[in-house]
Amino acid sequence: MDLRKLKTLIDLVSESNVSELEITEADGKVRIVKQSATQVVAMPAPVYAAPPAAAAAPAAAAPAAAPAAEAISGQVIKSPMVGTFYRASSPGAKAIADVGTQVKKGQAVCIIEAMKIMNEIESEFDGTVSKVLVENGQAVEYGQPLFIIE
């Protein structure tokens, strides 16, 4: 992305009500976050490979999430914060908790990145992960269900 285009984007964010903007192009990814009314910071966003299923059918992933939310049975681990959900500690690494994984109370099940800080999210229950309700790299909201433990 050229410098003139980046400056234009920063100016647009600073003059609007938008607090955060993320743009992905072939040559990279840029995330612009408005920290206060007068200060705008542009930073390169981390690039993580999408899981093969999400890359093959991104449109199908969103409708599938709605029925899963309706048919929740078991104990639910919810997001304690707003951020980006990651199943593994680094791109390409094995998922911390997958379907069928036995977890104990206090054991890490995923990572949520918030404000460039990686936060390990721990299970609140003992049991087996029966469903993972969020895709790797997806933005999550406070209180959003992440896992179902049975």
Rank of each mutant, 00 (worst) to 15 (best):
I111M: 08
V103A: 09
K116F: 10
K116N: 06
K104V: 15
V129K: 00
I117G: 12
V99C: 09
V109S: 06
E113D: 12
V129C: 01
G100L: 10
A114E: 12
K105M: 05
T128F: 00
R87T: 04
F85K: 00
F125V: 13
S123M: 04
A114I: 09
G127T: 08
A97S: 15
I117T: 14
C110H: 14
I96W: 08
F125D: 12
A97W: 10
A88E: 01
V103L: 05
E113V: 04
T128N: 04
G92S: 08
K116L: 08
S123Y: 05
E113G: 06
S89I: 03
G127Y: 08
I111A: 13
T101V: 12
P91H: 00
K105V: 07
T128H: 01
K94S: 15
A108Y: 05
S90Y: 02
N119S: 11
Y86K: 01
Q102S: 13
G100R: 06
T101Y: 03
V129I: 13
K116E: 15
F85G: 00
F85Y: 06
S89K: 10
F125E: 04
S89M: 07
G92Y: 01
K94V: 13
G100Q: 07
S90A: 13
A95N: 14
M115Y: 11
D98P: 09
V103P: 15
M115Q: 11
G92F: 02
A88W: 01
G106K: 11
I121E: 00
A108T: 15
N119A: 06
R87H: 09
K94C: 10
E122K: 10
K116Q: 13
A108L: 08
R87L: 01
F85N: 00
A97T: 12
A114F: 03
V99K: 10
K94W: 14
I96R: 03
E124N: 15
M118V: 06
E122A: 09
S123N: 13
D98N: 11
D98Q: 13
C110E: 10
V99R: 05
Y86D: 02
I117M: 10
I96S: 07
A95Q: 07
A97P: 12
S123A: 08
V103E: 10
T101P: 07
F125Y: 12
Y86G: 03
D98E: 15
F85W: 00
G92C: 09
A88C: 05
K104Y: 06
A95P: 15
E124T: 03
V99M: 09
V99S: 13
Q107W: 01
G127K: 07
M118L: 04
A114R: 05
K105R: 09
R87E: 04
A108K: 08
K116M: 14
Y86V: 08
I117S: 06
A93N: 04
P91T: 02
K104H: 10
M118C: 10
K94Y: 14
G100S: 06
V129A: 00
E120S: 15
D98A: 15
